[in-house]
Write a protein that binds this DNA or RNA. Structure first.
Length: 485
RNA sequence: GCCGCGUUCGUCUAGGGGUUAGGACGCCGGCCUUUCACGCCGGUAACACGGGUUCAAAUCCCGUACGCGGUACCA
C-alpha cells in the first residue's frame, strides 16, 4: 500500500486562525498516526485578498505549535513548488485538456451579462449555457480568433446535466448531490489564475495526496471536484470533512464574533497571551474528536498515538474558553520547572520585573499549582517580586485587628534576629510568639500574610516567607506596621 | 429560495434497540488547609419535536423545527 499523504492547504488571505489550526492539527495527527507525510501547500490564487505576511505567520505559528510538516514552500520536497501561484502553467495545461476533451469551455461573458443572468434567477449551467457568450455557442474559428486577439475569458467546467454525484466521506458517510444543483464552475479566472476547484484537484493529484482532510464548508464543492477527477480520469482521494468550530453562541467563529466574546482568533494571539501550545492542541483535538476512553489530558505525542479519523464526530462544536483555560492549567502544571521559567519570563519582563532566574525558579516551585496561565506569576503573584503597595481592604478589615501591629512588629523583630531562615524556624518563632502573647496562631499568620503580600490568599505562609527571604520579610512587615498602624 | 450537513446535561462528549444514559469543563456543597489554590469526595443538569417500525426506541425509518454551511472570476 502506498504511503499516506495529507496536505494542509491554507490560503494566505489572513493570519493563521484557530479554526485553521484545528484543521492543520487533524491533518497532522492523521498523517503522523499513519506514518504518512504532511504537506503544506499555499493556495495563493486569490490575488485580491492576498496578505503579504500571511504565509509567514502560518508557517511560524504551525511550527510554534509543534505541527511540523514534511514538505512546504520553504522546505521544498519532491513535488515542489508548493505555492500555487508558482504552478500556473500546470493548471492552464489541464484546463486546456479539459476543453479539448469537451469537459470545459471558454466563456467570454461580461460580468454584466452574468449579473443579468443571476438576476433572472438563472444559473450558469446546462439550462442556460447555450444562451451565453462562450465557445459552445460560436464557431471554432471565431473562438480561436477572439482568444488570439487577447480578449478576456474564463474557462468553465461543463457540468453534466442530470447525474447524481455520490461519495463516501470518512466522517460524514455517504453524501449525495444532484448535478442539476451545480453551476458551470469557473476553472481559470480572467486573470489567468486557477480557481480553488481546479488548482486543488490538480495539485492533490500531482502531489499524490491520499486523504483530503478539510473543513465542512467544502462538502458542497466536493461534487465539483469529483467531476474534475472523473474528467481527468484520476483516482479520487479519500475525503474527510471536519465539522466546524462555532462561537459560544452558536454562530460562525468569525473575527468579529470571537472578539466580541473575548476569544482570541489568531493563533499568535493565543501564544502571545501565554497559552501553552500543547494545551491548545489538546483542547482543539477534543473539539470534535474523542479517544473513546475517559482520558482528557494529552500531549501532542499522545494524541498522535491515539488519534483516528473514525472517532471524529460529525456535529459542529462550540468553542469553550473555560475548558481551554482548564487544559492550560493542566499542561502548565505538567511542565518542568525549567520550561515553566521560560514561559513565565516574558511576562515578568513585560511587567518590568527583572530578577535572577534562580529566584524566579524558587517562586515557580512555590506557586506552580496555582497558575492557570503563564502570565499569572507576573500579575497574581507580583508580590513575590515587588513589595505590596496596597493592602486588600477587605482583608485588612477582617484580619488586621487592634493587636495586629504589635504582633507583626514583634514577629519582625524575631525574624530579624534569626540566623537560619528556614521554614521550621519561621513557624517555631510564630507559634512561640503566639503562645507568649496568649493568642491563637491565626491571629499572627493572617496579618503577616497580609503585610507581606497585600492579600489574604496565597501559598503556605512559611514557604512564602522563606522564598521572600529575611530582609524582604522584615522590611515588609515593618512597612505594613507603619502603614496599617 | 434552492442544495447540503447537523441536533445527548449550559458547554465538550461517551453510548447506540432493553443502561440508575457514563465522563470532562462550568456551577454548587463538603473534606484537606487557621488563607487561597491544587487534590479528593458529593451534588446539579441532557437524548429537539411529531409520527411510524418493534414486545421494547435516546438508539432504526420518515417528516417538522431549529442551527450551521454552500449557492462567487473567495478560499
Amino acid at each position: 500500500m502506498s504511503v499516506i499523504r495529507v496536505r494542509f492547504a491554507p490560503s494566505p488571505t489572513g493570519y493563521l486562525h484557530i479554526g485553521g489550526l484545528r484543521t492543520a492539527l487533524y491533518c497532522y495527527l492523521f498523517a503522523r498516526s499513519q506514518g504518512g507525510k504532511l504537506v503544506l501547500r499555499i493556495e495563493d490564487t486569490d490575488r485580491t485578498r492576498f496578505v503579504e505576511d500571511a504565509e509567514d505567520d502560518i508557517v511560524q505559528n504551525l511550527a510554534r505549535c509543534g505541527l511540523d510538516v514534511d514538505e512546504s514552500p520553504m522546505l521544498g520536497g519532491p513535488y515542489a513548488p508548493y505555492r500555487q501561484s508558482e504552478r500556473q502553467n500546470l493548471y492552464r495545461k489541464y484546463a486546456e485538456s479539459l476543453v479539448d476533451s469537451g469537459h470545459a469551455y471558454y466563456a467570454f461573458d461580461s460580468s454584466d451579462s452574468i449579473a443579468e443572468l443571476r438576476k433572472r434567477n438563472k444559473a450558469y449551467d446546462a439550462s442556460t449555457r447555450l444562451q451565453m457568450d462562450n465557445s459552445l455557442t460560436h464557431p471554432k474559428e471565431v473562438v480561436s480568433m477572439r482568444l488570439e486577439s487577447g480578449e478576456e475569458y474564463v474557462v468553465r467546467l461543463c457540468v453534466p446535466e442530470d447525474v447524481t454525484i455520490q461519495f463516501d466521506d470518512l466522517i460524514k458517510g455517504a453524501v449525495k448531490v444532484d448535478s442539476a444543483n451545480i453551476d458551470d464552475q469557473v476553472l481559470i479566472k480572467s486573470d489567468g489564475m486557477p480557481t480553488y476547484h481546479l488548482a486543488n484537484v490538480v495539485d492533490d493529484h500531482h502531489m499524490a495526496i491520499t486523504h483530503v482532510i478539510r473543513g465542512d464548508e467544502w462538502i458542497p464543492s466536493t461534487p465539483k471536484h469529483i467531476l474534475l477527477y472523473q474528467a481527468f480520469g484520476w483516482q479520487l482521494p479519500a475525503m474527510a470533512h471536519l465539522p466546524l468550530i462555532l462561537s459560544p453562541t452558536g454562530g460562525k467563529l468569525s473575527k468579529r464574533s470571537a472578539q466580541r466574546q473575548g476569544i482570541p482568533i489568531n493563533v499568535s494571539d493565543y501564544l502571545s497571551k501565554g497559552y501553552e501550545p500543547q494545551a491548545v492542541m489538546n483542547f482543539l483535538a477534543l473539539l470534535g474528536w474523542n479517544p473513546g476512553t475517559e482520558d482528557e489530558v494529552f500531549t501532542l505525542e499522545e494524541l498522535v498515538s491515539t488519534f483516528s479519523l473514525e472517532r471524529v464526530g460529525s456535529a459542529p462544536a462550540k468553542f469553550d474558553l473555560d475548558k481551554l483555560n482548564w487544559f492550560n492549567a493542566q499542561h502548565l502544571r505538567r511542565l518542568d520547572i525549567e520550561v515553566l521559567l521560560e514561559r513565565v519570563r516574558p511576562f515578568l519582563e513585560e511587567h518590568g520585573i527583572a530578577v535572577q532566574d534562580a529566584y524566579i525558579q524558587k517562586v515557580c516551585l512555590l506557586v506552580h499549582d496555582r497558575l492557570q496561565h503563564a502570565k499569572d506569576l507576573a500579575t497574581n503573584f507580583s508580590y513575590c517580586f515587588v513589595d505590596p503597595v496596597t493592602f486588600d481592604p477587605k482583608g485588612v478589615k477582617k484580619r488586621w485587628k487592634s493587636d495586629a501591629a504589635s504582633l507583626v512588629n514583634d514577629y519582625s523583630t524575631r525574624l530579624d534576629a534569626l540566623t537560619s531562615f528556614n521554614e521550621d524556624a519561621l513557624e517555631f518563632e510564630l507559634r512561640d510568639l503566639a503562645a507568649s502573647r496568649k493568642v491563637g496562631a491565626g491571629r499572627i499568620i493572617h496579618p503577616v500574610r497580609l503585610a507581606v503580600s497585600g492579600t489574604t490568599a496565597g501559598p503556605g505562609l512559611f514557604a512564602l516567607l522563606r522564598v521572600l527571604g529575611q530582609h524582604t520579610c522584615v522590611r515588609r512587615l515593618r512597612n505594613a506596621v507603619t502603614k496599617l498602624g
